[in-house]
Design a protein around this nucleic acid. Structure first.
Length: 806
DNA sequence: GGGCTGGATTTTTTT
DNA sequence: AATCCAGCCC
């Protein structure tokens, strides 16, 4: 590392500072005064307080371009960190567009985690790792902790691994190594937390693995203990930019301070009112303290909002004003006043979903006051993911296309994880956790006993499980059917492993390679005759994994096979299996096919940074939102975070925002009556149109008539809510005919599709599985599903059972 | 060793 | 309601 040479390092830069310095700077003219001030204050610490929808990303990218344009830095001397891959991608795109294809790449623009992986690969040996360490996901982490808990004779019923994982994660977020955990935490996990944390870290090192928290923790440790390394990067990263600064945790904060320590050219962008990740270690204090941390910091406030109507902004401001701990901003806009927020109560969650479904269809057609909307201009934002279900069920029945964002993520699905475990053992045969996962999947007759034998032998000989298995076989410790299957597996693994190591094609040519002469970057092997995509397919087929699902009669099996197919296809975009595996470990967001217009359903957390013309915010009920748990665990602090979540939700809307709540909701399969959220009382009356009469939820709203709505809320339906008492309402809602307002769309297509089926046909449905057609009603089929019971479903959501993939 | 059953337990939010 | 796990029986 000492041979680091700055001149060398610069050679990789893809464009010369001088070449662009001569360019004009049209991007500056497109900024408002505040944005421009934030962009032009290049030196020294800058805090950009950017309210929702105030052009934060625009300012941030303009700043990067300005740094390049003025010749202050080369692309690879700017460190810019984001939290999500999506944000990183967007910034890269926008910088490229602003500069006009000039920049080959910004190697140090990425998420905290992705950047830390790069750094850690280069200095792994300083924390006792090899540079090809694997990154464990939560699942592996839990299994490892379970083993540790068992080894320590702790009752995992009373002290579950999940809890320990949470504690350790919390400590890592605060940048505490086992030795640094303060005494005040000694009581954690029945007084054994610290000790187990220590054991866990040791085990990780043995496995040459890290978990998510380690990525930051290790890098911070390296910076703290190796001045020369730190000095190198301090010189290297001349300018630092941080997005979503309000979400940084202590470890990230330390990391930034260490790097910015000398030149202090750090620009942090954030909005204290949008800090919603306290539960995972984010410290709002970081942003609140910025001026104290960096004396002489310039603070720029972006307050002109370009997204929402005044009513929406006013409502959001009214709610967030209830928080004590904030720096304070006043958002304003030049937009026309537009629609008020709409508020409506429902009998229960299903009714809420039904109503929203009808509203969406009305919005599609167009209403008196608003233009017609496309489905992808509409979003439903929920507090907790279990709320999504009611909407999915409803939308499937009425045939309304929707997309769940951030739901059960592709790479987290069982079959994806199994397949990737195979890839992992093939790539690195000493990945014990992956081996454990696949050794008996599909079933090979290798149960607990055989696995324990392997474990024991591996431990006794200090080798990996795969090698342990080899020894066990050689000793004749595992015989019979299981033994034969194990022999087959072990041989296959070795064979596949050899196939990954064709001739050496190249070294990682990522331009970060020039930063130092540390450990060699990931070598790229390849075999011109057999690419990794084919190899992956071979692994899945020859291992019997594909066959396992083909023989599986459960309704999910076809979907899983489909996912496997997709997984293999996803490999095409990578150079090799290990590149793919690293991508998956870091990039858990699934960029699903954006085919066609669909309503988006997602959590409020997932919605941060997004915007939609029309937003529905269902489930505003005390206990659900604000979440009871959040209030129980962190009291007022938790409530304030929930309130910020409400603020985030409302400010996602550009033109129309509808808040709703239900009087009854099923929780854990049990009906529970609900009270409207306290946040509803905090909405400023002048900016809200109440579609619900007073009395229904006991709030303080006056006599606003539901009839005033310019939308197609049917008078008859609105009247329901004018009648006092729950009972009448219930009668009405159950008596109301299944909505007739939707047939207009796609009738022709649906009828055609319907005609493809006759009673008795075996069919398949993505969500409900296999079933048989009972009857045909209009554009819908009545189907008796094997697992899900009798349901009516629109025909185009159905496939003939024979047409199912695989 | 594997599969089934009944009982407990779950629901925040995620890089 | 749905999933997960331990314990039981084959």
């Amino acid at each position: 590392m000492s041979s680091f040479d700055e001149n060398d390092a610069f050679e990789g830069a893809s464009l010369s500072a001088r070449a662009i310095a001569a360019r004009p700077a049209p991007y500056l003219d497109e900024l408002n005064p505040a944005q421009r001030a934030a962009v032009e204050a290049l030196d020294g610490p800058v805090l950009m307080l950017a309210g929702a929808g105030t052009g934060k990303t625009k300012a941030l990218t303009a700043r990067i371009v300005h740094l390049l344009n003025t010749g202050r830095a080369q692309p690879n001397e700017i460190l810019s960190v984001t939290f999500t891959n999506k944000a990183a991608r967007e910034m890269k795109d926008r910088v490229g567009r602003m500069l006009g294809q000039a920049v080959e790449g910004m190697p140090w623009l990425g998420t905290f985690h992705a950047i830390c992986v790069k750094l850690l690969r280069r200095h792994a040996e300083l924390v006792g790792l090899k540079s090809n360490f694997t990154i464990l996901d939560t699942d592996d982490q839990i299994r490892l902790l379970k083993q540790l808990i068992a080894a320590n004779n702790i009752d995992d019923k009373r002290w579950p691994a999940r809890q320990l994982a949470g504690i350790i994660d919390h400590w890592k977020n605060r940048a505490w190594t086992p030795a640094q955990v303060p005494g005040s935490e000694a009581g954690a996990f029945n007084n054994r937390g610290t000790e187990l944390y220590d054991q866990y870290q040791t085990r990780l090192r043995e496995l040459n693995a890290v978990d998510f928290g380690d990525l930051l923790l290790h890098v911070v440790t390296i910076f703290q203990t190796h001045e020369d390394v730190l000095a190198q990067y301090r010189r290297w990263f001349k300018y630092i930019l941080v997005d979503e600064y309000q979400d940084t945790n202590v470890a990230q904060y330390l990391w930034l301070r260490l790097l910015a320590g000398e030149h202090k050219n750090i620009c942090c962008v954030g909005d204290d009112d949008q800090s919603i990740y306290g539960w995972r270690g984010a410290e709002v204090g970081n942003i609140l303290r910025f001026e104290a941390d960096f004396p002489g910091a310039q603070v720029v406030r972006l307050e002109q909002n370009y997204r929402s109507t005044p009513h929406i902004l006013a409502a959001a401001s009214g709610v967030i004003a209830g928080n004590e701990d904030r720096l304070g901003k006043t958002l304003w806009t030049e937009a026309e006043s537009g629609e008020k927020l709409r508020l409506i109560g429902h009998w229960d969650g299903e009714e809420e979903a039904r109503w929203i479904g009808e509203e969406i269809e009305a919005l599609q057609r167009g209403t008196r006051r608003l233009p017609p909307f496309d489905l992808d201009q509409i979003a439903i934002l929920v507090r907790a993911s279990h709320q999504m279900r009611a909407f999915e069920d409803r939308f499937l029945t009425i045939g309304l296309p929707y997309r769940v964002i951030g739901g059960p993520r592709f790479y987290e699905r069982l079959e994806s994880r199994d397949a990737m475990a195979y890839f992992r053992v093939v790539v690195s045969p000493d990945d014990d956790l992956a081996f454990e996962r696949i050794v008996n999947t599909p079933k090979r007759g290798l149960g607990d006993k055989a696995q324990q034998t392997i474990q024991g032998i591996a431990r006794a000989n200090g080798v990996s499980l795969v090698d342990g298995a080899r020894i066990a076989l050689a000793n004749g410790d595992i015989k019979g059917k299981g033994g034969a299957a194990l022999r087959q597996l072990v041989d296959d693994l070795a064979r596949w492993h050899d196939l990954t190591r064709g001739p050496l094609l190249a070294f990682d040519e990522d331009d970060t390679a020039v930063i130092d002469d540390g450990p060699a970057p990931q070598p790229r092997f390849g075999d011109p005759d057999l690419n990794h995509v084919e190899l992956a397919q071979i692994i899945l087929d020859e291992s019997g994994y594909t066959a396992m699902w083909q023989n599986d009669k459960s309704p999910e099996a076809p979907g899983r096979l489909e996912n496997l197919k997709e997984l293999v296809k996803a490999l095409e975009q990578f150079d090799n299996l290990s590149g793919f595996l690293e991508h998956v470990a870091l990039i858990m967001d699934n960029a699903q096919g954006d085919d066609g217009a669909k309503v988006s359903i997602m959590t409020l957390h997932a919605a941060k940074g997004l915007e939609f013309p029309v937003v529905f915010l269902p489930g505003w009920e005390d206990g659900l939102f604000p979440s009871q748990r959040s209030m129980d665990e962190t009291g007022l602090k938790g409530l304030e975070e929930e309130r910020r979540l409400a603020y985030v939700g409302i400010t996602r809307a550009e033109q129309l925002c509808t808040i709703s709540f239900a009087g009854n909701r099923r929780v854990f399969g049990q009906w529970q009556s609900q009270l409207p959220s306290r946040f509803i009382d905090e909405l400023p009356e002048d900016h809200v149109e109440v579609l619900t009469p007073p009395g229904l939820y006991g709030g303080g709203y006056g006599a606003a008539s539901p009839m005033q709505s310019g939308l197609e809320t049917r008078a008859s339906e609105a009247n329901v809510y004018n009648s006092p008492g729950w009972k009448r309402m219930q009668d009405r809602s159950s008596a109301r005919p299944q909505s007739q307002s939707r047939e207009s769309r796609n009738t022709v297509i649906d009828l055609k599709a319907v005609s493809a089926y006759t009673v008795g046909d075996r069919v398949f449905h993505q969500k409900f599985g296999y079933g048989a057609v009972l009857g045909i009603e209009g554009d819908k089929l009545e189907i008796d599903f094997d697992k899900a019971g009798i349901k009516k479903v629109v025909a185009r959501f159905i496939t003939g059972a024979d047409d199912v993939p695989f």
